[in-house]
Design a protein around this nucleic acid. Sequence first.
DNA 1: TTCACAATGTGAAAATAATAACAAAAAAAA
DNA 2: TTTTTTTTGTTATTATTTTCACATTGTGAA
Lengths: 209, 209
Amino acid sequence: MKHLPHKTIERLSQYRRALLICLNNGQMHIYSHEIAKIQHITAVQVRRDLMLIGYTGTLRKGYNVKELIELIGQIIDSLDGINVAIIGMGNLGRALINYFAGKRSHLKIVASFDINPDKIGNKMSGIPCFSIDEMEKVIREKNIKVGIMTVPEDFASQTADKLVHAGIKGILNYTPKPVYVPNEVYLEEYDMITSLEKVAFYVKMQETE
Amino acid sequence: MKHLPHKTIERLSQYRRALLICLNNGQMHIYSHEIAKIQHITAVQVRRDLMLIGYTGTLRKGYNVKELIELIGQIIDSLDGINVAIIGMGNLGRALINYFAGKRSHLKIVASFDINPDKIGNKMSGIPCFSIDEMEKVIREKNIKVGIMTVPEDFASQTADKLVHAGIKGILNYTPKPVYVPNEVYLEEYDMITSLEKVAFYVKMQETE
DNA sequence: TTCACAATGTGAAAATAATAACAAAAAAAA
DNA sequence: TTTTTTTTGTTATTATTTTCACATTGTGAA
């Protein structure tokens, strides 16, 4: 496989989650248009994505749920899992830990960090919380590859710097403040305010139409 | 203005936030490449976006920060603000309320909803919390146009249904479960797990390269 | 068996988004 | 004054992503 579009990667992750639910419900096969409906996209798009990863369904029966889950895993997961840390145990950090708690996955949250002494040393949903000062040490020791930044925005830059310095490979920044990282670190930024303003914009549009 | 690309809308929101910070620092003008640097995009893209909204900078001086903030507001904001509700006062709901607390904006969070009796009747950062049962009533009374869903995923569908029934115009779904709404309701879904898996994928890619 | 149907798979076209290239002009430097 | 530099604005080009259109084929019904 030469190169998968960014959007396809995102959708594969979503397909898999939908498929896991289907599998849980005992569904063995699924049609492209069923997947499409769940994700609010078109069936062609689903088929094309699957074409790109080289998966072939059965005519008239659709796709084998189990096989497809398996294959998507082969494509997007790392062979031996990736360790993740959450930096900032505020509300957002805790929300994320809860999201993941229990869900076994190739992505393992293995540490969290905060500056609040009350939190340091405790566990949240089984994840130990360390001091930010120990970040570099812990990241190296636990072989943490990805950091999720949920710190207050004033600490965004310095947190990113520390992560980079500790040798992190990818950062997911939930801070509203954009950060700078060297090219070899993959950075994904997501800003809730932007999403909300976007919704508001289209609501406005629909009204003034 | 006939039609702005989706991506441009998102970026405009981001430009504005960057510009507000600049304004706060006393900066009166800004170059396209400065904006670009903040947002990790190219200067051409910034100029093109601004071209699309019909804003013209000053050669050699760049863009007038104040004017541009003003104009972006005219484009993306509703004339008299939009009222927003957060449904689900878990960690994520609280995180969002804190994000917005203090920031005066045309988007006003005016209510939150939960099923936990301990939360109902209290205020969080000044926002009153109501029972889910009162949702329809409160949404109509307070003229709430946009709902942010931060409920546990098992409640996603029913919450969306209630919102639609209450006449909501836009939904931002932070639940990992996709929901269905009629066409006239604008729906934006965001899934943190997908984002994380995407980061993990590109980290993996960079390693196996 | 033959026909109609309901799926998949995919080349081609269209739509959307990003980048390159460069003219124009104001300011600064020579 | 003339030249150089810097920055905007915009057209043209390229890249990416989505959709269309349709060939193909297994299945069930007639």
